[in-house]
């Protein structure tokens, strides 16, 4: 464990807590893409298959349970909570996220480190996470006024993988044989997809104006 990865995990944890806070306290999921939440639930479900077979550390297991629990409960809230689901804008959240899963699965079947079920699913989760934010970014462009919590959620979610890039650089130089091209490339692509959001997010913060993404 290094400071970059710990900062990344804490940023990731903060993003899911911000979203849970928003949905649980103000009972609203306005501006939140259910599609992105479903993709993230699938990302964690396919990435943490080893939660029962490989024990790494208490921290690792606890964080996996938190990410699994929070992502599935957010999906449940938006789909089934009698008050929250009324604020879900399904006419705007129209990204065909199923079309994201298929190429990710195909790519995982061809480009992976080991051809085993767990490894292919793990690789699928990496590719899927790289594009999972797309429905949310599309929804933000359609949502005229983005509330602060949703903006903070997306910012933290993008920042966590950016911090992981520093973690991979650090581990590359400190641990022999730590080479994971697939993880690195997927992580860089994922972070780059947030580039324009980060730009407009900082602009709105600097000029102290409401965050708005150009359509």
């Amino acid at each position: 464990m290094n400071i970059f990865r710990l900062a990344g995990d804490m940023t990731h944890l903060a993003s899911v807590l911000v979203l849970l806070l928003k949905i649980h306290t103000i009972k609203s999921c306005a501006g939140v893409s259910l599609k992105t939440q479903e993709l993230y639930a699938l990302v964690f479900a396919t990435r943490y298959l080893d939660i029962v077979t490989d024990f790494i550390s208490v921290y690792n297991t606890v964080m996996k349970l938190i990410f699994l629990g929070s992502s599935f409960s957010i999906v449940w809230y938006i789909r089934h909570h009698r008050v929250v689901r009324r604020s879900y804008d399904k006419d705007q959240d129209t990204f065909r996220h199923y079309l994201l899963m298929i190429p990710c699965m195909l790519l995982a079947l061809f480009v992976h480190e080991k051809f085993t079920f767990k490894e292919v699913m793990w690789t699928f989760s990496l590719y899927l996470e790289a594009v999972a934010i797309l429905p949310q970014l599309v929804l933000l462009q359609r949502t005229r006024n983005i509330d602060n919590l949703t903006g903070q959620y997306v910012f933290l979610l993008g920042a966590y993988r950016g911090l992981y890039i520093f973690n991979w650089i650090y581990r590359y130089f400190t641990e022999p044989h730590f080479v994971h091209w697939i993880t690195w490339i997927a992580g860089v692509v994922q972070t780059l997809l947030y580039a324009d959001f980060f730009y407009y997010y900082f602009e709105s913060w600097k000029n102290n104006v409401r965050l708005q993404l150009p359509a």
Partner: peptide
């Protein structure tokens, strides 16, 4: 380590 690489990151 001898064991095949475990994915020790989240």
């Amino acid at each position: 380590r001898g064991k095949n690489f475990q994915h020790d990151e989240l």
